[in-house]
Design a protein around this nucleic acid. Structure first.
Lengths: 139, 139
DNA sequence: GGCGGGCTACTCGGATAGTGTGTGTCCGAGTTATGGCGG
DNA sequence: CCGCCATAACTCGGACACACACTATCCGAGTAGCCCGCC
């Protein structure tokens, strides 16, 4: 099990969007070149992000993408779930009865530990660190 | 990203082994029937577990598997890493220079949160809960 | 009675294959700002 | 000077293709306990 490349692309793209002027729309092409990533694939990831309201997309000339909320309101968890889906990482017991499955519970707890950490980390947090070091390309 | 079925099989099998008499070796076939799982595939998972010393395997007649350590010494993390591998879940930055990658660091921290939880949960912990409820099949 | 060989019940490891998902490409359709052309 | 239309620059969404890991199966090889027969 691994995080998909799509999640990687999405995270970096979101941070890049957060670092730009809020009112500018950035074209898909620019976003793709920024990280040297296939544009048509990145497009799919942005579509997923748009469905969750994390980015807003604008068609037509001078169209493109910008953040759908403020950087402070977007957590890493929002992004990873948007790309990976929000199903639990572990499905252990296929029983239909109401008996609780201990293994599954433990694994869910473990996943929650990771999720809460990601939920408590916002794009703004990353932005603050970057601005301190003044290194935009060390994202 | 998801935990593989192999991890599911491995976890349940390990708990089952832990619930048996320490000195009995359980045959692959019995382990497979216990969870209704393809034996030849389960065999591969047990091989992985054996390489990490989590189970001990015995060939020949009356052969089979038993735990490689005491149930208290085997954590869930040991098992999941044995099956899934111990590579980091997220590989974000393919740069060769020494500049640290913020995104990757955050994702690593998140993963650590989950890992420490799993590392702090041993087979013995599960066993204790099960014995309380006296429900061996609610694993 | 003791010893050895064959038998049986296992695991081990490699070879093979199906299947699903992640990854990536391509293209047509729809959308919007801009600029030019005609009235 | 004003409004309309063509065009260019975009996104959107579906269809398609490929690679790779997970899942699963099968079989030969090796191993260890057991039993039976022979000396």
């Amino acid at each position: 099990m691994k995080f998909s490349k799509g999640t990687n692309y999405a995270l970096h793209t979101m941070i890049y969007l957060a670092s730009q002027n809020e009112k500018d729309t950035i074209s898909l092409q620019e976003l793709a070149e920024q990280r040297n990533v296939p544009p048509s694939y990145l497009s799919k990831m942005l579509t997923k992000l748009a469905k969750k309201g994390l980015v807003a997309s604008y068609s037509g000339a001078y169209g493109g993408f910008r953040l759908g909320k403020s950087a402070k309101e977007i957590s890493f968890l929002d992004i990873t779930k948007a790309i990976e889906g929000d199903l639990p990482l572990f499905q252990g017991c296929d029983k239909d009865n109401g008996v609780e499955c201990l293994v599954e519970n433990i694994m869910k707890n473990a996943e929650n530990e990771m999720d809460t950490y990601l939920a408590n980390t916002s794009l703004q947090d990353v932005l603050n660190k970057v601005e301190k070091h003044d290194l935009v390309d060390s994202i």
